[in-house]
């Protein structure tokens, strides 16, 4: 008899996350078949590649989004609108599933949390008031990015000259830039002594430290997530709650990596995913009430909460302890 309910979703998610990282690295370092495939070269997935690797054939959509805005109004249609439409379409079908199932940032943060857990250090839990303060920050960052990029591209303002200095505002503070520029030098892909982006390295360190102590710290301020959050409430992937079965035990809130309190608080809606849920399914696998929470695609329930003691077939991946 298993004493702790096992993970029915987490192993699957881990698998997808590793595939996501493999895809990112493959894209970035131009490994066949990823980097060289002409079809994949034009694919701007949320962050399946980083422009700051020299061999990268493509970039993340946020780079493309900023770059498109900066490089001039005449190319908006191709460079910005189409890229964004692809992402919006993806979100409408799959919700923010990218965030917790494929995003490499997510895997790194979960790895750090796993490390912390095994060092027996408790997570730092944000207070309710701080969570509320943090909630709009990601939208602010998204807005600032647009605010800084858009005027440069508008030729009438005469700011085209700033293209080289003020372009790509978010990339300058993106931890990924810090990571890839440093690791390229360490791996010898770049000559030693090339100028390092200090700002990005500082934010990389901040990223590592904060997500070691706070679960999914970066996700709370990620502007890519913010963009997806704008549309995720209309998506086909959703988090279903059977309110009648809820015992308000607060497990869903305690285990939620992004402290999405709507799953716990909301006693009226059927869809409790809202815009902040990244659909990681942690609450679904931890909820002890049969069929109370479900990860659903359209009308179909992909995974539902079960009574503890009854495991899905993936229970074998679960760490057994306590005996």
């Amino acid at each position: 008899m298993d004493r702790f309910k096992g993970s029915i979703i987490r192993p699957w998610r881990l698998l997808f996350q590793f595939l996501g990282v493999a895809f990112l690295l493959g894209q970035s370092f131009g490994l066949p078949p990823f980097g060289t495939s002409p079809m994949l070269r034009t694919l701007f997935l949320p962050n399946a590649s980083c422009r700051y690797v020299d061999t990268a054939p493509t970039s993340c959509f946020y780079y493309q989004f900023q770059d498109g805005m900066t490089s001039g109004a005449s190319t908006y249609y191709v460079d910005v609108i189409v890229v964004l439409l692809i992402i919006v379409l993806m979100v409408l079908v799959l919700g923010r599933i990218w965030c917790s199932w494929l995003c490499p940032f997510g895997l790194v943060q979960e790895g750090l949390a796993y490390l912390r857990e095994n060092l027996n250090i408790r997570p730092y839990r944000l207070k309710w008031a701080h969570r509320e303060l943090l909630r709009p920050v990601k939208y602010v960052i998204l807005f600032l990015t647009v605010l800084l990029s858009l005027p440069i591209g508008l030729s009438g303002l005469g700011l085209l000259g700033c293209q080289s200095t003020l372009a790509l505002p978010f990339c300058q503070v993106c931890p990924a830039k810090g990571f890839f520029t440093v690791s390229e030098q360490l791996l010898g892909l770049e000559p030693w002594g090339t100028a390092l982006p200090l700002l990005a390295i500082v934010s990389l360190l901040l990223f590592l430290v904060s997500s070691f102590f706070v679960k999914m710290a970066f996700c709370r301020i990620c502007p890519m997530g913010a963009f997806m959050a704008l549309f995720s409430r209309f998506s086909l992937m959703w988090l279903e709650k059977d309110v009648d079965k809820c015992t308000k035990c607060r497990i869903c809130l305690r285990v939620c990596p992004v402290d999405h309190d709507r799953v716990y608080e909301d006693m009226e809606s059927v869809d409790v995913a809202g815009s902040d849920c990244t659909l990681c399914g942690r609450c679904v696998e931890m909820c002890p009430e049969e069929g109370c929470l479900s990860l659903s695609f359209g009308p179909k329930r992909l995974a539902s909460s079960k009574k503890p003691g009854r495991l899905g077939f993936l229970g074998m991946f679960h760490r057994k302890e306590g005996k």
């Binding site: 702790f4 309910k5 408790r122 015992t247 931890m286 503890p308």
Partner: peptide, 9 residues
């Protein structure tokens, strides 16, 4: 109501 452990610190 069972105790559901997320982490074990």
């Amino acid at each position: 109501d069972p105790v559901m452990l997320d982490e074990r610190s």
